[in-house]
Amino acid sequence: MPDTTTSAASTAPEAASAPAKRSLGTGPGRLLVTLYGVFTVAAASRSLYQVIAQFQVAPLAYSLSAVSAVVYGFILVSLVRGGEGARKAAAVSCALELIGVLGIGTWTLVEPSAFPDATVWSDYGMDYLFIPVALPVTGLMWLRRARTEAA
């Protein structure tokens, strides 16, 4: 009998955390996962190509694009993995992403000469229909709601 009680006790937290773990990538989160997936692929393939083929043209811009690709990839993995740790990590990187978009967006407008070629986050993501600005905001809202639902 002690066996059953310990196994019940050990499975209970798992069962409780399972829906919370899943909740990041389902429902509205599914749409976010898709968009982050698209942007990871887009930013990664774009920066990979530019770094390999023409890095000397605009090293700063291409490096920043590569950074954005890493950020998108990290958030994507966090959303898919789920759980409280991943939620916090995703929230921090969404905040970083927002700072990055706003910072680089402003930088490209203030000092265009530093950017011979565009980055993913140039002009607040204008090349990408301004989705790069909207994405971290919706991401943070969703991650906030996922926390209140889990609590």
Binding site: G27, R30, L31, T34, L35
Partner: peptide, 17 residues
């Protein structure tokens, strides 16, 4: 993605695609 998300958000995913 929409096959494994049988809610309105699955439809939204395809719309985004």
């Amino acid at each position: 993605m929409s096959l494994s998300e049988r809610t309105r958000w699955g439809s939204a995913t395809v719309a985004a695609g």
